[in-house]
Nucleic acid binder design. Structure first.
Lengths: 189, 189
DNA sequence: CGGCTTATTGATCCGACTCAACGTTAGTGG
DNA sequence: CCACTAACGTTGAGTCGGATCAATAAGCCG
């Protein structure tokens, strides 16, 4: 969709499908900053700098709606509440980022994966997709990158969760079998 | 300044001094999400929820300017560019959060501390304070919490940096002696 | 001075990373 | 349609960074 350094021209809204956003670190590594599903809005981090410092990649066949930012600014002068809506969306993004910081700063590997699975589940449910069926096309490597851990660790924990009957994984198809017990895994007692 | 759960009424701008923001995790722990110096704006994460899910605490004698959000909305209808300015500020905050995510997700303890010190240094310099004199009143425990590591580890790394002549610490007075070599510590070769 | 909080240092331990090998799947072209 | 291959996923062994636990020092303030 866009890459690091691209000039900021349009705001993106996901109509269907799923998208990951990532940034390049100064030493050339990639950090995935988010997975996004239908209904979510992307590209807002570039408003100040006028150019994207992150990139967004579709993870499956995905339909996108692009709104030129200039057009948005025009519209927002005639439609009251539109800019406010935008503030809300960004405020939400900040909130979401804060959650991710807690996850990265304070949680163990197991807590991270459990939190992550439930987070996706919630967001899918909010948009009327089945909450226990996570069919976003994300690799183990994407997940591990996002959660700040090694790919192998993600595998091992999926294995453990499966033994405990919490989830069933079949490669990239993930089914959540016990949301309540998974919830318990998201935090220390 | 405000606490978790407080109704969202005003936006805060720091006139002088320094402030830390933090959130409570679901299992009762605290994660510090930012340190802020004069000129920065706080409280924007509460626009959507109408109530703060974070809290802000002054770390020293600090002067604050409060702008009621309702007043802000009125003003933004008469002053063009004001809401846009706000979008910019939030866009910046998102950017900053992304950096922090990389820090928490990808960097070693040493890289974290070095990155952190230089980050503060940059921001002080931008506001015409000396760049090598970090006199914000932050405890080791605040720093370690923010960086997602143990207090003891922060101490040890300060010790190491001091041996190498990179910094001089005297309790909460921190002096950066070699910005260039410190910069080198912020990333893997 | 004496009690309290904060900082430092040491010893030990464990969770998660790394490295390595192997199994599995999807995608490719013959 | 099947064989081949490259990418992805899983599993095991060994190591290490940083957490934890514990004791001690250094400021801070009444």
């Amino acid at each position: 969709m866009y890459r690091t350094g691209d000039t900021f021209r349009v705001i993106y809204a996901i109509r269907s499908g799923s998208v990951k956003t990532s940034i390049l670190t100064d030493d050339g590594k990639v950090q995935i900053t988010g997975f996004h599903v239908a209904g979510e809005v992307l590209g807002l981090d570039a408003i100040t700098a006028k150019r994207h410092n992150s990139e967004a990649t579709a993870m499956e066949a995905t339909s996108i709606c692009e709104v030129p930012f200039e057009r948005f600014k025009e519209l927002s002068e005639t439609i009251p509440g539109l800019q406010y809506k935008m503030l809300e969306i960004m405020s939400n993004e900040i909130l979401h980022n804060h959650e991710l910081m807690v996850l990265l700063g304070k949680k163990s590997a197991e807590e991270r994966l459990a939190t992550y699975l439930l987070n996706i589940s919630d967001r899918l449910e909010k948009r009327n997709f089945p909450a226990t069926q996570l069919d976003m096309n994300m690799s183990r490597s994407d997940i591990s990158n996002y959660l700040g851990m090694a790919e192998e660790t993600v595998c091992r924990i999926f294995g453990r969760f499966q033994e405990e009957g919490l989830v069933t994984t079949q490669r990239r198809k993930i089914v959540l079998n016990d949301l309540a017990r998974l919830k318990a895994k998201t935090r220390r007692n």
